[in-house]
Amino acid sequence: MKVLTGNRLTDGEAVWYRADGSFAETIDGAQLAKDKAEQDRLEAIGKKAYADNLILDVELIDVELFDGRIVPQRLRERIRAAGPTNRTDLGKQARSAPAAAAGFDGGGI
């Protein structure tokens, strides 16, 4: 299972693609691609967002669902989704509980 992510051109903010066509600042509610066709569709959306000068470093990343929460497989992506693990007062984890929960949760892998 994958989601589409990247960084916004104007401020570099990490963002994830949602079903409504927007790139949101949290991974919650990101559009899930469960098969090859859906992945191809997201990949095309990512390429267009890059070409349209909206999103940089566009990538499809592997995720899993835990109690309905989207959790990236790689630590790198969990840190992107939450913020620096040494500064929990910064990044998305500092904004709202659900965002924090979606991201890094203590180092266990």
């Binding site: 960084n7 401020d11 570099g12 903010e13 990490a14 940089l56 470093d57 790198r76 840190i79 992107r80 913020g83 620096p84 990044g91």
Partner: peptide
């Protein structure tokens, strides 16, 4: 050339 990188969370 002007020291601006793109990292995980931001520039």
């Amino acid at each position: 050339m002007n020291g601006v990188y793109l990292q995980l969370h931001a520039y």
